[in-house]
């Protein structure tokens, strides 16, 4: 079977995942773990990750994609999602990937908030990675919460035909008062933890190669790149000028950021 859905993890924290068997197993290619973004963005990323996993499996990489506790088909309510919990789930997923693939070398790919989760989980568990892909990753949590709040207000104002001010009054005028975003609960604990993310200060895990993948004009801050350079053998920056993967237009469409997927598959396949 090419892809096998499964449950794994602690009994009181059961996680849903899909394991993609390598089609032509190769010792040269690492096992790959995919880290979802948060909330609505995970739904927008679903097809992207599925296609990415299939492409990677085709070049010989076993791949695990999974839902955090409180997300997707995993157990738990949306209100239970915390950043610490996501990091804990990442460790469970890595254990599962290791057990299923028998691989010793790994590449992690984190999209959106998943990038920050991957960085934190690798650092906390001292996982040495061949590749760490930070794809449109949250490197500054305060900025991310601001963007999430703005996206939530804009989406509601547009879809409810209501003045932005009226929506803001109902939702809360500032990111730290936001109890929900784009259909998902944002607990105070989650908000506090995410607000504290600053990859330029917290540092990077040890990884042979760190790849910053930023769409359009969102170049990574030089301080973040400098911090990554201190921990990685090499740092790569991939600029993608295609439409953002998480735009409203990308919702309920077949939009796929092909150039970004090609970049990842090529980097893992050629181990550069």
């Amino acid at each position: 079977m090419a892809a096998a859905p499964l449950y794994f993890g602690e009994s009181n924290r059961r996680l849903y995942g899909v394991y993609h068997h390598a089609e032509a197993p190769s010792s040269r290619v690492p096992g790959v773990l995919l880290f979802n973004p948060f909330g609505e963005e995970a739904i927008r990323a679903y097809r992207i990750f599925k296609l990415l996993a299939e492409r990677l499996a085709r070049i010989g990489a076993p791949v695990l994609r999974f839902d955090y506790f409180g997300a997707g088909d995993s157990a738990g309510d949306c209100a239970d999602v915390t950043f610490g919990g996501m990091v804990r789930d990442a460790a469970s997923a890595q254990e599962e990937l290791q057990a299923m693939s028998a691989k010793r070398r790994f590449a992690w790919i984190g999209l959106g908030l998943g990038g920050a989760v991957a960085a934190a989980a690798a650092r906390e568990n001292d996982v040495r990675l061949e590749h760490l892909f930070l794809w449109d990753a949250v490197v500054n949590g305060t900025q991310y919460l601001r963007e999430l709040h703005a996206a939530h207000l804009a989406f509601l104002a547009r879809n409810l035909d209501q003045p932005a001010g009226a929506v803001a009054k109902r939702v809360g005028p500032a990111p730290d008062t936001m109890a929900e975003a784009l259909g998902f609960a944002v607990s105070q604990a989650l908000s506090r933890e995410v607000g504290a993310i600053d990859l330029s200060k917290t540092g990077f895990p040890r990884a042979a190669r760190v790849h910053f993948m930023r769409p359009g004009a969102h170049a990574p801050e030089s301080s973040v790149v400098a911090t990554a350079e201190s921990a990685a053998k090499s740092v790569h920056v991939f600029e993608d000028d295609s439409d953002p993967w998480n735009s409203d237009d990308a919702l309920n469409s077949y939009f796929i950021p092909t150039a970004a997927i090609d970049y990842i598959v090529d980097a893992i396949g050629s181990n550069r």
Binding site: I43, R47, D73, G183, S253
Partner: peptide, 15 residues
Amino acid sequence: AGVVHRIGAHRLNVK
């Protein structure tokens, strides 16, 4: 619903 996978928009099917 549409091309969204089975969890539904905003995970509504799971909820």
